[in-house]
Amino acid sequence: MNMLEVNDLSYSYPDGKPALRGVSMHAAEGECVGIVGPNGAGKSTLLLHLNGILPEDDSRHGKVVVCGDRITSANLHEVHRMVGLLFQDPDDQLFCPTVQEDVAFGPAQFGSPAGEIDRIVRESLAQVGLEGFERRSPHHLSGGEKQRVCLAGILACNPSILVLDEPTSDLDPRGRRELTRLIRGLPATRVIASHDLELVVDLCSRVYLLDGGEVVASGPAVEILSDEELMLAHGLEKPHSLQHRHPHP
């Protein structure tokens, strides 16, 4: 079954500039799908649609299908819980004064009983390898730690689909390696938008190449990302790890 489906989605910003034109995509259960493309291709805008943050106008939902149900204004709250969204800048996402409160934010909003929340926070932090960080404040954390707390805050909501926007853009190689390992180990369906193509090759089985708000190409990750001509035409590069690998093993 497809956990996530997008059917012919178009979107223009409030100033009239088109951002997405007829985008269709899907992700099967447990699959890890990559979305690649140059800056301004519409990757982030697409991701914001996947859990119903966009469009702002409630009557225009319905192009995105989550676990077999179209997003409508009625099931929006449930969609927020099922689709966990990791934002590009961890400082946007860590809005509470302590790590504890931040990780607890989602479960509290979704109505977990107060007695459960402490346990959920502890388990979520353990899952990202940050045991004992509860009383720390976000502005005293390193970039990698911030990103992992963000991930813990999303895992605490127990989502079935994870949507990650440029998860490695702020990280040093060690932080990147740890996050990659973490993401790989998660059972949820994952959608990753990134220009970190090594990460995409590493984690994703299929990719969609987005440019100018349109899906320009889609298919197996290795096949699409090895197409040097295609990559260069859309502001990307063939990843190093694929330089000497044949696309059809």
């Binding site: 914001l48 859990n51 943050i53 709250h77 927020h80 819980r81 966990g84 969204l85 934002f87 800048d89 400082d91 946007d92 996402q93 809005f95 934010f105 989602g106 909003q109 979704f110 805050g153 999303i154 909501c157």
Partner: peptide, 16 residues
Amino acid sequence: ERAERIYAAMTARGWR
């Protein structure tokens, strides 16, 4: 701009 992104992040985790 950041305020808008924070609001989106809050909504994404169930704020209403």
